[in-house]
């Protein structure tokens, strides 16, 4: 546990240094850059790219969470039962669509820029959250549900005070899957002119500048790993609280 904490703090420090003080890394990346070429990406500040990247992911994931959880609640009510097989089909089929293809297919409809990236991230992000929320809400222990009914809670109270809190860890797992996919897909979003950290990697690939590629890759990879880890910690904490 202790070693995990030290690694975590070291990685956060490394990430902050890479984003805020890229100049410190000139000696590290210089051997990777072409001779006489630039070492550190300077066309845009890494901080603003990071913020824009995280912002796109946050907005898309938040919207996806709201819609997906609402849909899952509707489908798990008695009135929505007829839609359950259909929604299962849609999530199964939808998740076989590659995220890159969803992004590419959004461009002809929405044009270039941040818009298609947001929409693609949102659409793709719905599926894992919806699937997990549906599983979480439909596999509650029946004894608990009986007890909730027995103490006189109405439908709304049962949903808000019993069902959603119990399903929360499973829903969070869905959100985590969705956020990790969104971070990766947003990187590719820079090929359709969205302002994300993918810009640095693409610039490196186009000019054969490995220093850019490693720089962008490290920053995106560290963000993804740290966010993934933070959400796992949150889930574990919630799960132990539930188990108590």
């Amino acid at each position: 546990m202790k070693a995990g904490h030290i690694i975590r703090i070291a990685l956060i420090a490394l990430l902050l240094a890479l984003v805020l003080r890229p100049d410190w890394f000139v000696p590290v990346f210089a051997p990777l850059a072409p001779v006489g070429g630039p070492v550190i990406y300077e066309r845009a500040s890494l901080l603003s790219l990071s913020l824009s990247h995280l912002g796109i992911v946050a907005v898309a994931s938040l919207a996806a969470t709201l819609i997906a959880v609402t849909l899952a609640i509707l489908v798990t009510r008695p009135a929505g039962a007829a839609f359950r097989p259909l929604s299962r089909t849609i999530t199964n089929m939808g998740q076989t669509f590659p995220p890159v293809a969803v992004l590419a297919l959004a461009v002809p409809i929405l044009g270039f820029g941040t818009g298609p990236t947001l929409v693609a991230l949102f659409l793709y992000g719905l599926l894992p959250i919806f699937e997990n929320a549906m599983t979480g809400l439909s596999t509650l222990p029946s004894a608990t549900m009986e007890a909730a009914r027995g103490i006189g809670l109405n439908r709304w109270q049962r949903l808000v005070r019993v069902e959603l809190p119990l399903a929360l860890p499973v829903i969070l797992t869905g959100i985590r899957l969705s956020v990790v996919i969104a971070l990766g897909t947003a990187t590719i979003g820079s090929t359709v002119a969205a302002r994300t950290l993918g810009e640095v990697i693409i610039a490196g690939l186009l000019t054969n500048n490995t220093a850019y590629v490693v720089q962008g890759g490290l920053i995106v990879g560290l963000f993804a790993a740290l966010i993934f880890d933070a959400m796992v910690q949150l889930e574990a904490r919630l799960a132990t609280r539930m188990g108590r």
Partner: peptide, 12 residues
């Protein structure tokens, strides 16, 4: 968890 573009790039 490593984004695909970063992974492909770093492999080079």
């Amino acid at each position: 968890t490593i984004p695909s573009l970063a992974m492909f790039g770093i492999m080079i």
